[in-house]
């Protein structure tokens, strides 16, 4: 039995529970009890995370979507905890999203920017991490320009580590927030066709999305010119396309990626204009997908290159701002779940 049919069987078995009236009982039965629901110390990537563990995080995030839409926007469960956001690579939206997530849960959040730190003075990454560790952080959120850097740090420090993006490897909270966005728009992920188009080669967002979406039963297509397509990407259970129109046919979700010119050494495409000609999401192109296809972009967007403004702003179809909203909720869920052991939450300590 492959994992997909296993998942469908599991979903069928869950059906009676979800139809029960008591949400408490349903919650108790849907996932393994306590920390078995998410038995990982940190969140370095979505590769190897089980379907029910991904769904657990998505379900946990739902309450934070509600809270964030309320007037108070405040929960105190992380009061007294210190969260360090150590960003060795520039970021605006992800850093802000993690900072807001921590603060809304009552934690003390401090941000470290590599540009202002001793990293510039030649200190090694491990030494910096050990310094932060000695300050007794309760969780660390780390972004770094090199693939594997976050895993390296996670192996050396005592607290849970959340990957906020490592090189071209993974950006797990982005994968989760995209899944949550899609699930809220489409009901469920199983059976959907998701087309990811753009700079797949340099994209950690693409990798985390591929892991998350394929694990949850979606059919994932990746579309890029050969130079921006990773070798043997089909081994990740996706279908590669070079022709954007073909990749769009029948898609339920269209996810556009930014051209990561800062990661390119040498010329990968002739020009942004030419890239738009072949891979830009225009209204005409969008019409090749399903009539209700969802438009997504992890941002920041290059309007007029990979996505036209009238597509990015299309009412009822563009989920781009919803993705940002779901980002805060997902990060709150991750911070809550990963600090439960340290907080002595029953079943997790």
């Amino acid at each position: 039995m492959d994992w997909q049919s296993g998942l469908r069987n599991a979903a069928r078995q869950l059906m009676p529970l979800s139809s029960m009236t008591s949400t408490k009982l349903a919650q108790a039965g849907r996932y393994p009890a306590g920390s078995a629901a998410f038995p990982h110390r940190g969140l370095v990537g979505l590769a190897g995370i089980a379907p029910h563990e991904l769904l657990f995080l998505l379900d946990e995030a739902e309450q934070w979507v509600e809270l964030n839409r309320s007037a108070k926007k405040r929960d105190e469960r992380l009061a007294g905890l210190t969260i360090i956001n150590a960003f060795f690579e520039n970021s605006t939206r992800t850093l802000l999203s993690f900072e807001i997530a921590g603060k809304r849960l009552g934690a003390d959040v401090v941000n470290m920017h590599a540009a202002q730190s001793s990293v510039k003075k030649g200190e090694t990454l491990i030494d910096t991490a050990m310094t932060l560790n000695a300050m007794r952080a309760d969780a660390m959120v780390i972004r770094h320009a090199s693939s594997g850097a976050v895993q390296l740090i996670a192996g050396k420090v005592d607290c849970p580590v959340l990957n906020a993006g490592d090189g071209q490897h993974e950006h797990p909270t982005q994968g989760l927030l995209d899944a949550l966005t899609i699930r809220r728009a489409k009901g469920e992920l199983n059976g959907l066709t998701v087309t990811i188009c753009g700079d797949i080669l340099h994209s950690r967002v693409a990798r985390s999305n591929i892991h998350c979406l394929t694990t949850l039963g979606a059919e994932v297509r990746v579309c890029a010119p050969p130079a921006l397509m990773p070798a043997e990407v089909e081994a990740m259970k996706v279908t590669p396309f070079h022709d954007f129109d073909a990749a769009l046919a029948g898609a339920d979700v269209v996810m556009m990626l930014r051209l990561q010119q800062e990661r390119m050494q040498g010329q990968f495409i002739p020009s942004p204009r030419e890239f738009r000609h072949l891979y830009g999401l225009t209204l005409d192109r969008l019409a090749k997908a399903k009539p209700d296809a969802l438009v997504m972009h992890p941002g920041p967007m290059n309007r007029g290159i990979e996505i036209d403004s009238n597509v990015a702003d299309l009412p009822g179809r563009s989920a781009i701002t919803t993705q940002v909203e779901m980002g805060v909720a997902i990060r709150m869920a991750c911070l809550d779940v990963l600090t439960r052991k340290a907080r002595g939450v029953e079943g997790w300590a």
Partner: peptide, 21 residues
Amino acid sequence: TGSAVATAGEMATRLGLPSAP
């Protein structure tokens, strides 16, 4: 090769490492 540190293929793709054929 450029700045590649791995051989192009599934492993480099999964790890997100710069690779060359």
